[in-house]
């Protein structure tokens, strides 16, 4: 159908124009990242003079040296890994059995439970009651609190439930006649059959945890518990007002901007490393969870 050789001149012209527009949008998407990378490798002086456009000016790795010796940076980096791995595992521990139970026709009150969960997608108590609740539960400034309180969300459960529901009933029945109980049906049949869906949810969880910032900022006070995103935020808002930093900066080849850029680069790299896997699954995933008849 789409064969270049069969295109009329007008169609060819149209296709070329579209290709150019897409190219421009793609470049525009990519450019800010390149620009930040260039700033991070430039000297503070060059950056502040607004000379950096595409490539590093007066190439230097001083900004990276500055961050990489900061213990707080490494602590927050480690914390982000803890939150990401711990949080994702916690999410799966809730979501997989929960979604399985909700997908079973024999579950009494299934409609009610599904509504009970879906309702939270439409109505949310909001920031303040959630915060006060966390305080009442003594989960303020708690790493475990962060891992637990954001473990589940209705969307992921519904996504996986839909996937489980689409598995033919006979798979479960055959396993049951073979003597499997529900835990065995889930573990030996449903989970292996749902690898793509579970991979999608795992990636959603990883990305959400890696990027999570607002509640970590609100709930965590101790410097040794904050994740990378909160550390980055502190750096963003404090660096330029920090007198001590301003003094060291005078003698160094970095500036608030190049240091910020360097932190951004450091925190994007892990995302870029897992991005190929993310990409493999999310297209499927977003459609799985989407509109259901």
């Amino acid at each position: 159908m789409m064969n270049w050789n069969l295109y009329s001149r007008g169609d060819k012209f149209f296709a070329i124009v579209v290709s150019i527009l897409i190219g421009m949008f793609t470049v525009a998407t990519l450019y800010p990242f390149i620009y930040i990378a260039a700033v991070s490798f430039s000297s503070g002086f060059a950056a502040q003079a607004g000379k950096v456009v595409l490539t590093p000016i007066d190439s230097t790795i001083e900004a990276y040296k500055y961050i990489l010796v900061q213990p707080d940076f490494w602590i927050s980096y480690r914390n982000t890994f803890i939150y990401t791995i711990g949080g994702t595992v916690m999410s799966l521990l809730f979501i997989i059995p929960g979604a399985y139970a909700l997908s079973r026709p024999q579950l009494f009150g299934r409609r009610f439970f599904n509504l009970f969960i879906a309702f939270t997608m439409w109505f949310n108590a909001g920031i303040i009651p959630f915060y006060l609740n966390m305080r009442d539960l003594s989960l303020l400034d708690s790493m475990f609190g962060i891992i637990l309180a954001f473990a589940v969300n209705a969307f992921n459960i519904i996504l996986l439930r839909n996937f489980f529901e689409a598995i033919p009933q006979s798979f479960e029945e055959a396993a049951r006649m073979d003597g499997a109980n529900d835990f065995q049906v889930l573990w030996k049949v449903f989970i292996p059959l749902s690898k793509p869906a579970i991979a999608t949810i795992t990636l959603f969880c990883i990305v959400a945890r890696w990027n999570g910032f607002f509640w970590a900022m609100v709930l965590l006070q101790s410097q040794e518990k904050i994740p990378l995103q909160v550390f980055l935020r502190h750096t963003l808002s404090n660096l330029s007002d920090d007198d001590e930093f301003a003094i060291t900066q005078l003698e160094a080849a970095y500036s608030a901007e190049t240091v910020t850029a360097a932190i951004i680069v450091c925190s994007i790299i892990p995302v870029l490393l897992v991005y190929p896997w993310i990409q493999k699954y999310f297209e499927k995933g977003i459609l799985l969870g989407g509109v259901k008849e």
Partner: peptide, 8 residues
């Protein structure tokens, strides 16, 4: 993340 977007 939005922090990085904001930083950019």
């Amino acid at each position: 993340s939005s922090v990085i977007i904001a930083g950019i």
